[in-house]
């Protein structure tokens, strides 16, 4: 994937479609109602909304951990477990394994031996800037570094799609900004599609080219916004008038969603 293909939205081929996806828990709690989403190759989509709007449920449905009560999720073209990477809100590392072995996990589960994929592991660690910490244990790392390991693990298989469920919500703002910048650079480097769940307007505008605004009770999609600023985006984008305008638009849409729910 090159920058050119990332920059040209609309003309990209479709990766997967959610068609009228509904999820009901316990018979009467509607977590998600009639969600349609066409995910195209190279998209950076943020699912933005208040808690209870079904954004995490949407991710679990796409990852195949749970199945829709109604509607369907259709992948275009063949897809295997290699094609998906996941980053949770918690780093979710194995405390007994070194950084390197944590990143090795997805490949190990594919039956690969470490020696044959060492290059891929090293590359993933270099990508997140942790090549010097391959032998460290998770407890020796800061919160931000743990999250980087988690990202490296999601990227080590070079998946087509990475699902991120509020990965930076628990981090301090300085670390969060730094990781936002780095995440865009990493995405640029491996050219994957990202679906990113967040409740931060600023984060969603900075990162994504498509923002899907969602409302709660029942969880549903309110509208979609386009952020047409080109990648790569840098710190300058964060202080631009364009950025502020997008933030305002997203914020207004979110208020509408919240007001609707109240």
């Amino acid at each position: 994937m090159t920058e050119a293909t990332i920059a040209k939205a609309g003309s990209r081929p479709s990766l997967l479609q959610m068609q009228g996806v509904t999820k009901v828990f316990g018979g009467d709690v509607v977590a998600l109602r009639g969600m349609d989403l066409d995910v195209r190759l190279g998209d950076f989509i943020s699912l933005l909304g208040p808690s209870g709007c079904g954004k995490s449920t949407a991710l679990r449905l796409i990852s195949g951990l749970t199945h829709p009560t109604a509607g369907r999720i259709r992948w275009d073209g063949p897809h295997g477990t290699d094609d998906l990477g996941v980053v949770f809100q918690e780093p979710t590392l194995m405390p007994w394994a070194t950084v390197e072995d944590n990143v090795f996990l997805p490949l190990r589960l594919k039956g690969k031996r470490k020696a044959e994929v060492q290059a891929a592991i090293d590359a993933a660690l270099a990508l997140v800037g942790l090549d010097a910490f391959a032998g460290a244990y998770p407890r020796e790392l800061s919160g931000g570094m743990k999250m980087r390991v988690s990202i490296a693990r999601a990227m080590v298989t070079r998946p087509k799609l990475i699902l991120m469920d509020e990965p930076f919500a628990a981090l301090d703002e300085i670390t969060r900004f730094k990781l936002n910048n780095d995440l865009l650079a990493m995405r640029q480097a491996i050219g994957c599609t990202v679906i990113f769940v967040t409740h931060s307007v600023f984060e969603s505008v900075f990162l994504s080219d498509r923002i899907v605004i969602m409302a709660a009770r029942p969880g549903r999609v309110i509208r979609e916004l386009q952020v047409d600023a080109p990648y790569p985006r840098t710190e300058e984008f964060r202080t631009s008038a364009e950025y502020a305008a997008h933030c305002r638009a997203a914020s207004d849409a979110l208020h509408e969603a919240m007001g609707d729910a109240a």
């Binding site: 990852s63 996941v86 949770f88 996990l105 190990r108 589960l109």
Partner: peptide
């Protein structure tokens, strides 16, 4: 850890892989 279990499922881990690489170390 529940998230780790989900992760193993997403990567299509077999029962044996879950036991060997996740449950036994957790149980140690």
């Amino acid at each position: 850890d529940h998230n780790l279990r989900d992760l193993f499922s997403i990567y299509g881990a077999t029962r044996w892989q879950k036991l060997r690489y996740l449950q036994l170390p957790s149980a140690l």
